[in-house]
Every structure is written in structure tokens, then in C-alpha cells.
């Protein structure tokens, strides 16, 4: 690939028609996003914000209604049309539910061998060697090879699905909530696996997550979404330290610390109400119906992304490079 960004999303919209014909669900509603090569990019937000749809659209599992996705500078839609195989050697997807994304009747060996066969990777001996390498990468013992997905634990299954995604040595991995279904102690194992894989293989990783503590731990960059749009984006640490968008402030405030001494004295921002439906976003700023500091202009005019003090961008009328609202 050239020196273009690993992923570039421009003016992306994904709308789902409603069966009754009334207002379409605007899952992704105008997104621009750049993921640099070698970044570990987190996409966060609540149910219905469009984060999963965005991830699926990046890899072409979902068709865009408008806009383009460039992978390494190359138009993803055209690439998929002309040469699907070379695209899938470059970009792979890891699903939230590993069991649902594997064949229940295929052993781990068959699951890992399938992409190699489809892509005519070497002889059966070479494939066997590659599979051994993959097991090594994800720290699984050879004894799992004959087993069926059902007989593996949740953590082992997720390791198999990561190994399968790595089989063809992709440079980009897009993962949809790969940790959500796992227990706490197992989650830490998989988080550590992702970080070591990224360092070892120089991968670009995009991860959809809702555990913000983990995002803070592993992601170099983060994008916060609300109702189909980006509300804030930037480098993870500074953004989490001084979030500029009131929604990010509330979202970050909602994460409890495991330390009761911190929890006892902490001021919490409690938002009123639920997020509105993505089929009928409110006029003006999408967050205005729940925003404690909204002013008149917020109810009329949709704010554009602008630079804010932490060095990233936020879509808030009350924020700019010199100041940020504090709620």
C-alpha cells in the first residue's frame, strides 16, 4: 500500500429503510474518519449510535447509502467488486459472537484452514505449519485443533476467531465488540492479546467497544459517536482527561471506578432521559434533548466538528479551540 491512511471514511451515510415506509433508520448519518496506519482506534457510543454499522460498512459487510470508504487510499467498493480476495487478504473482521461466526460442525483445524485453502496458501504441509504459527500467536495449545467451537470456552473461541482473521496476514483488523461476551478475567487476557498482536505484527486495529476503561487502556485514538454522527474524536488520553463535548463528559462520568474511595466522593453527571430514536433525530444538535448546557442555537443548527483544547475535534456550539463547556 502507499502512504495513504489505513482507513479513510468520507461523508458516509448508511440508512435502513423502515418496513412501514416511514422514516428510515439513519444508523450512520454523515461521518468522516481517518485511521492512521498502525493506530489502535476505538469507536465508542451507546446502543443505536451506529458504531457497529460504521465498522461493518468499513469492511464492506454493509453497503453504504452515500459516501466512500478508502482502504490504503483505494476505493473499497470498487476493490471489492474487482478483486474480493485481495481485499480480504488486507482487511479482516472479528465478530462479537465467535460462536455465531464459526461453523458449528468444523473443527478448529478446519476453521483455520478454510481461509488458507480459499486463498490457495501453499501445500497442506505449509498450511499445517501456518496453523501452528497462528495458534502460537493467539496462545492456544495444539490440543484444541480437533475440537468443535461448542466445546471451547468463550475466551478460547474468541482466540480462534482472531487466529482465523490473522490467517492471511492482513494489515487491518476491524473488531465489533470482541470483548463484550467475555468474563472479566478472560477479557483481560484478550485485551492483552490484542495489544501484543498489534505490536508484534504492526497491525492497524479498529475496535468497537463499550467498555471505556479498556478503550483508555489500549486505544491510541478514539471516536465518540452519538445518533449516527461523530460527537468527538481525538487522541485517547487527552480526550478522556478533558472531554470537550457535553455528551462525552456524561459518558465518561458514567464509568464507575473499581475503587470505593474514588466512588465515594465523586461527582456524577446523570443525564435525563434516553437517546432519541435514530429514525427521528432531533433538529439542531443531536444531543440537545439531553444536554444540560444547551442554548437556543443548539436546537436549530447542527454543530460541525471543530478543534478543541485537547487537540482533537468536537461537534458542539459551545466548544472551540480556546474553551470547552463544563457540565
Amino acid at each position: 500500500m502507499s502512504d495513504a491512511a489505513a482507513i479513510e471514511v468520507r461523508g458516509l451515510k448508511v440508512h435502513f429503510a423502515n418496513r412501514s415506509g416511514a422514516g428510515a433508520v439513519r444508523a450512520v448519518d454523515g461521518i468522516d474518519l481517518t485511521v492512521a496506519r498502525g493506530a489502535f482506534h476505538g469507536i465508542v457510543g451507546e446502543s443505536g449510535c451506529g458504531k457497529t454499522t460504521l465498522a461493518r460498512t468499513i469492511v464492506g459487510l454493509q453497503k453504504e447509502s452515500e459516501g466512500t470508504v478508502l482502504i490504503g487510499g483505494r476505493n473499497r467498493a470498487e476493490w471489492l467488486k474487482s478483486d474480493r480476495k485481495s481485499f480480504s487478504r488486507e482487511v479482516q473482521f472479528v465478530f462479537q459472537d465467535p460462536l455465531g461466526s464459526m461453523s458449528r460442525r468444523q473443527s478448529v483445524y478446519q476453521t483455520l484452514e478454510e481461509p488458507l485453502q480459499i486463498h490457495r496458501f501453499g501445500s497442506s504441509v505449509e498450511r499445517r505449519r501456518r496453523i501452528a504459527e497462528l495458534l502460537d500467536l493467539v496462545a492456544l495449545p495444539e490440543t484444541v485443533l480437533d475440537r468443535l467451537p461448542r466445546s471451547l470456552s468463550g475466551g478460547q473461541r474468541q482466540r480462534v476467531s482472531i487466529a482465523r482473521a490473522l490467517a492471511l496476514k492482513p494489515s487491518i483488523l476491524v473488531c465489533d465488540e470482541p470483548l463484550s461476551a467475555l468474563d472479566v478475567s478472560i477479557r483481560a487476557q484478550i485485551v492483552n492479546l490484542f495489544t501484543s498482536l498489534q505490536k508484534q505484527l504492526g497491525l492497524t486495529i479498529v475496535i468497537v467497544a463499550h467498555d471505556l476503561a479498556i478503550v483508555r487502556e489500549v486505544c491510541s485514538d478514539v471516536t465518540v459517536m452519538y445518533l449516527g454522527r461523530i460527537s468527538e474524536a481525538g487522541v485517547t488520553r487527552p480526550l478522556f482527561r478533558e472531554p470537550a463535548h457535553p455528551y462525552s463528559q456524561a459518558l465518561l462520568s458514567a464509568v464507575p471506578s473499581p475503587d470505593p474511595r474514588i466512588e465515594a466522593g465523586r461527582r456524577r453527571i446523570i443525564l435525563a432521559g434516553d437517546p432519541p430514536s435514530p429514525s427521528a433525530p432531533p433538529p439542531g444538535c443531536r444531543f440537545n434533548t439531553r444536554c444540560p448546557v444547551a442554548i437556543d442555537v443548539c436546537r436549530v443548527e447542527e454543530p460541525m466538528l471543530r478543534s478543541v483544547p485537547h487537540g482533537g475535534v468536537a461537534a458542539c456550539h459551545l466548544a472551540d479551540s480556546g474553551r470547552r463547556p463544563v457540565i
Binding site: 472479566v184 478475567s185 477479557r187 483481560a188 487476557q189 485485551v191 492483552n192 471505556l212 476503561a213 479498556i214 483508555r216 487502556e217 465518561l252 464509568v255 464507575p256 471506578s257 473499581p258 475503587d259 474514588i262 465523586r266
Partner: peptide
């Protein structure tokens, strides 16, 4: 194995 979102320092997440 639980990262502390509010701690100042990043303690490496350990695993069991």
C-alpha cells in the same frame, strides 16, 4: 484484571 478508569497511572492490566 479490571482497569481503573479513574486512576491517574496506567497500571498494566493483569490477567488470571
Amino acid at each position: 484484571s479490571v482497569p481503573d478508569f479513574r486512576a491517574d497511572e496506567r497500571a498494566a492490566t493483569r490477567e488470571i
